[in-house]
């Protein structure tokens, strides 16, 4: 078993979509803004560009919707917003994530104390 890059990538793969949904649950955002916010979180995003295919899939599967809005200066921006289905999925993930996190913590963190 190897820790490091591979492990971080695996953890990222399963959770990034929910991080996107969680950000959009607070308010709608346009692509550049959303990507910037995500990449400010350490270790979450290695290639900002890969978030766009993820967003496309989330839209195709009905978890987010997109709307074009004028930006005042420059071209219109594509805004992403969470759907009810996305919100429901995020809520389910939160429950599962808390359970999962405390289960892993109870084993992994205990090892460091003894």
């Amino acid at each position: 078993m190897t820790a490091g890059g591979g492990l971080a990538a695996q953890l990222r793969k399963g959770t990034l979509a929910y991080c996107v949904l969680a950000l959009l649950a607070r308010r709608e955002r346009y692509g550049f803004e959303l990507v910037r916010t995500l990449s400010e979180v350490d270790g979450l995003v290695t290639s900002e560009g890969t978030i766009y295919p993820l967003l496309s899939r989330l839209r195709k599967d009905g978890y987010v919707t997109t709307t074009w809005r004028d930006s005042g200066e420059g071209p219109p921006r594509k805004y992403y917003a969470i759907t009810r289905q996305g919100q429901a999925d995020l809520d389910a993930f939160r429950v599962e994530w808390r359970r999962f996190r405390s289960a892993v913590d109870s084993l992994v963190e205990e090892g460091t104390r003894s």
Partner: peptide, 14 residues
Amino acid sequence: DDLVADLTAHLDAG
């Protein structure tokens, strides 16, 4: 088309 448009907008904004 989606990918190229999204990344073009991203890079123009950046």
